[in-house]
Simulated scan of single mutants.
Amino acid sequence: MERLYTEQLDIAYGDVSIVDNLNISIPSGQITALVGANGSGKSTILKAMARMMKPKAGTVFLDGKSIHRQATKDVAKQLAILPQNPIAPDGLTVSELVTYGRFPHQKGFGSLSKEDKEAVRWSIEMTGMNEFYDRPVDQLSGGQRQRAWIAMALAQGTNILFLDEPTTFLDMAHQLEVLKLLQKLNKEENRTIVMVVHDLNHAARYAHHMVAIKKGTVICSGTPAEVMKLDVLREVFGIEADIIPDPRTGVPLCLPYELAPEAHKSAGGSAPAANQAAKSNELAASSR
């Protein structure tokens, strides 16, 4: 049995249900990518599994125990989460930011122990941020800033790392920089990584396991080859696409070329349908 999984998980914002009866397992020691259209509930599921929000019903299990019944510090020693677009206080340096990752291991407001300092040093070195040790985070480029936040999560010393759209707003080079770092952490440190990813081809190339989600429901899960199927892409994303093997890795690549028929109907629907779409967009915004 995997270390982290859910059973009959229901998640809601007020009276609005986002996820119903979710049963999902996260393979230990692998990279898992949650994929789906905007507003599908990916980020909501990630937050619930990382204990950032409490489900309406059901359970998230970590090492056989309900994650929401465990002490916060105990959970923080097992998993770390990097939310979307985190913002550091003005003037905070990289080393100061990374030090925050040691809070779950400290007692009261004591100074850093030798172990804490070593964890901070190692995390900064692992993420290639040595030259920016004393640089304010708000003076870094987007890719450097994201690596600094990942270093903070690493300093937390957890085996499980959650990331919510870690490549959002980054250019292609910085996206690859972050994804290769996560791949390195998985290979060299055996970290279990769970991330929400928008780019299907990034998910297929860097993840071992993919979970395709639509309206809070898992449509398909498995290896990239098992998930990147034409029928799955039609149902989850509303697209027609060609699937070809990556010439370097052999994993499937998605080349979308047209909206699926149902997506066409949705785009050209009546006024009531358009109103419903607007409501769906508002719901999507609230569920991110």
Rank of each mutant, 00 (worst) to 15 (best):
R51M: 08
V236A: 05
D199K: 08
P256A: 04
F103S: 13
A225F: 01
Q106G: 07
S287C: 04
L112G: 02
G238C: 08
I239H: 07
G14W: 11
D20M: 03
L97A: 08
A274Y: 02
V227H: 04
G110R: 07
N38K: 11
V251K: 04
Y5G: 01
G269E: 07
L161P: 01
P89M: 14
I31W: 09
T32S: 14
P83H: 03
P136H: 03
L200M: 12
G216C: 05
P86I: 02
E96D: 13
A204G: 12
S141P: 04
Y133I: 14
I160L: 00
D74N: 06
H174E: 04
G143F: 01
Q84N: 11
D74C: 00
P256H: 01
S66R: 00
S123M: 07
N159A: 12
P256D: 11
V251M: 11
G222H: 06
P252F: 06
N186K: 15
P166V: 10
I45P: 01
R234G: 09
T93C: 11
S270H: 03
A225P: 04
L170P: 10
D90T: 12
T192H: 05
V194M: 13
V16W: 09
A88G: 09
R234W: 08
A277F: 03
N281S: 09
R3L: 11
V194H: 08
I193E: 06
S43G: 01
M52Y: 12
Y257P: 01
L259M: 14
L163N: 08
W122I: 14
V19M: 02
N275Q: 13
I67V: 15
F61K: 05
K56I: 05
A80E: 04
E240P: 01
A204E: 03
A119N: 02
D199R: 01
N281C: 03
E240Q: 15
L255H: 12
F103N: 14
T44P: 05
A207P: 05
E165V: 02
T127A: 12
R121S: 14
N159G: 15
E118H: 05
E115T: 14
T99N: 03
L154Y: 05
H209L: 04
G238L: 00
L34S: 02
D10T: 04
W149G: 05
G39H: 08
N130T: 13
